[in-house]
């Protein structure tokens, strides 16, 4: 039985796809058989972040419409053994997704995988609702700014009402908060919301905090999930996040402003 986790946010550009790729990679590195599905039909990105855009033949919509088998569409990751990617279609729109089709895909994956990560599109419309509908857990990605927090709040409300678990009256979806692009220096200056304020407003468990980092941008452009860059702060923060997702107790890092010491200033600072 696989655990189905949706990575969602409401607002666009907060780091859903980056986080879905990094967490899926982290789970696979920990030996979990993981599939990551791009639900952003029409605005396909996950394949770029995962660095497999040249190997896409079939996609989620082909599978749902019966034009290809699931095994034909799943792309095996070149770097980690247990990781598979199901890309979205770039030439269709979200209307091509059906609830029955998505259910069938998830049911099939359910037998072979430990984790299924659903990378949700932005917004609260059909694509986002289908991405979350069958989830067991949700990772709500939030940036430390008011509009992102409000949109996340809206999504958490939808998770409690517009999902299969909610409609059946099963145990509710477990909601986790993942704060990305956190810059402790700018928080101290008052440019960004601080961690405690975000936690107070959203009132769900904090799964992880990813510092704003050049490593993330670099990773995206190279098509290598940042989890592989274990010397970077963001890579380590995602590894911590994955450990917590697996039930381990890991102390929070990178949430306080570190003044650069004399040595690191002299040698340019290796923590990037």
């Amino acid at each position: 039985m696989a655990k189905i986790i949706v990575v969602t946010s409401g607002k666009g550009g907060v780091g859903k796809t980056t986080s879905a790729a990094a967490i899926a990679t982290g789970l696979a590195l920990r030996g979990k058989k993981t599939a990551v599905i791009d639900f952003d039909v029409g605005l396909r990105n996950l394949d770029l972040i995962m660095g497999c855009e040249r190997r896409v033949v079939y996609d989620l919509v082909n599978v749902i419409q019966g034009e290809a088998g699931l095994n034909q569409a799943l792309i095996r990751d070149k770097r980690v053994d247990n990781l598979h990617i199901l890309p979205a279609s770039q030439t269709r729109d979200k209307e091509a997704l059906t609830q029955e089709g998505v259910e069938k895909v998830l049911d099939t994956l359910n037998q072979d995988f430990d984790f299924i990560i659903c990378d949700s599109p932005a917004g609260i419309e059909r694509g986002a609702q289908l991405a979350m509908y069958f989830a067991d857990e949700a990772i709500v990605v939030t940036n430390p700014e008011v509009s992102s927090v409000r949109d996340s709040d809206r999504i958490i409300g939808l998770l409690a009402s517009k999902t299969r678990r909610a409609e059946r009256g099963d145990d509710p979806i477990r909601e986790h908060l993942l704060i990305t692009r956190y810059n402790p220096g700018r928080v101290d200056l008052g440019d960004m919301l601080n961690l405690d304020d975000i936690r107070e407003i959203l009132a769900i468990d904090l799964l992880g905090l990813i510092p704003e980092s050049e490593a993330v941008l670099r990773a995206s452009n190279q098509g290598v999930p940042v989890t592989h860059d274990d010397s970077s702060d963001a890579g380590q923060a995602y590894a911590d996040t994955v450990a917590r997702l697996l039930g381990e107790e890991v102390p929070l890092r990178f949430h306080e402003y570190q003044k650069k010491g004399l040595l690191s200033r002299m040698f340019g600072g290796t923590r990037r």
Binding site: D151, R154, I156, G157, L158, A203
Partner: peptide, 14 residues
């Protein structure tokens, strides 16, 4: 007199 009690966070859009 009884009215209604709601427990939990009332979220954006609700």
């Amino acid at each position: 007199a009884g009215g209604r009690i709601y427990r939990g966070t009332v979220r954006s859009g609700q």
